[in-house]
């Protein structure tokens, strides 16, 4: 493996990899060769009488001390490669609020822009302030050698510098339930200039009301995509983890409320309730406790747009 320079963390990690993998292959190949030579040379047909050797203290000392020195060297490279991951982010780091919840990522920028993929500038320190809303998740960007668990109930920081524009995988790597393997996103690294214009442009996207030429329902659709709602809800009637949006509005829905089965009409209030207090009523055939409230994540205006979107799927 050649050391990667895709992030500021990569070189230290890859140096440790090279040192350790070299030691591993040296010992594995060396010992295996010795083993095979011994078996061939000292098999019964070649060597009918075994020499009764009990051991050799000098050898014991040699093969205790030398490995001890080697593992200390490996420990050292592991430690120095890891140190930068534990340091505090620089003051000029670009801060992004990162929220993990069952099976989706959400990245919120200082100007209010929110996405389900991470878009960042190359060559500039990026600091992720990470929270989990439900269970433990772990952010993993293999190309950047970055991995940190995000425990619910406490904020964690991860900072790094991405060096090369491109698109990279971002995984959740702490098992988090049903759709764990779909909790995938990507990191889009833009050059500083590109990022600048994207970021400025995105302001108009965020303040949704500005773009009047686009219909309310298609803006609602955009918000739903950005929040990652589609991980659990489909727009085409497919049953995933939660009910589909298709054909819900205006129809009767059988739900379980306080342990009792009741039938309600899916009006605008019902849609709002389902987003802001999702465990108040559970549609029959689905599980309680999987969805958390989106109260803090949505403005009233955005909520209205989502309602428009769901209305349009009738």
């Amino acid at each position: 493996m050649i050391t990667s320079n895709l992030s500021n963390l990569a070189r230290g990690v890859d140096t440790a990899f090279i040192v350790i993998l070299s030691v591993i292959f040296f010992f594995l190949i060396g010992l295996t060769v010795v083993l095979i030579i011994f078996i061939l040379r000292y098999r019964e047909s070649k060597n009918p009488v075994a020499s009764q050797i009990h051991g050799n203290n000098k050898l014991e000392i040699i093969w205790t001390v030398i490995p001890l020195l080697i593992v200390m060297a490996m420990f050292y490279f592991g430690w120095t490669g890891w140190k930068p991951m534990d340091s505090a982010p620089p003051d000029d780091a670009f801060e992004i609020e990162t929220t993990a919840r069952m099976w989706k990522w959400s990245f919120k920028y200082p100007n209010g822009k929110r996405l389900d993929t991470l878009v960042i500038p190359a060559g500039k320190p990026v600091s992720l302030n990470m929270n989990s809303l439900d269970v433990i998740h772990s952010i993993y960007i293999p190309a950047f050698r970055l991995k940190k668990d995000i425990n619910p109930g406490s904020e964690r920081n991860a900072w790094f510098i991405a060096n090369t524009p491109g698109i990279y995988d971002l995984f959740c790597t702490e098992y988090c339930g049903l759709e764990h393997s779909s909790m995938i996103s990507s990191v889009k690294v833009l050059s500083a200039d590109e990022f600048e214009s994207w970021y400025a442009d995105s302001v108009s996207e965020t303040h949704i009301a500005v773009k009047t030429e686009v219909s309310a329902s298609s803006r609602g659709k955009q918000i739903v995509q950005q929040l990652g709602c589609n991980a659990c809800h489909s727009a085409d009637g497919t049953k995933i983890v939660g009910p589909s949006y298709l054909g819900v509005f205006g129809h009767e829905v059988t739900v379980i409320r306080d342990g009792k089965t009741v039938t309600v009409t899916a009006d605008e209030d019902y849609i709002r309730r389902s987003i802001l207090d999702p465990n108040f009523e559970i549609v029959e055939g689905y599980n309680k406790g999987l969805m958390l409230s989106y109260e803090d994540l949505l403005s009233d205006e955005e909520l209205d747009l989502i309602v428009e979107y769901i209305k349009s799927l009738n």
Binding site: G12, V13, T15, A16, F17, I20, L21, V23, I24, F27, L28, L31, T32, V71, M74, F75, F77, G78, W79, T80, G81, W82, M85, S138, Y140, P142, R145, L146, K147, T173, E174
Partner: peptide
């Protein structure tokens, strides 16, 4: 030997972080 030697990758902090939970 393969099992034990690959454990060195996991004992070392920098490399552990990359391959942990993989």
């Amino acid at each position: 030997m393969i099992g034990g030697l690959s454990g060195l990758v996991l004992g070392s902090l920098a490399t552990n972080v990359h391959v942990h939970d993989t």
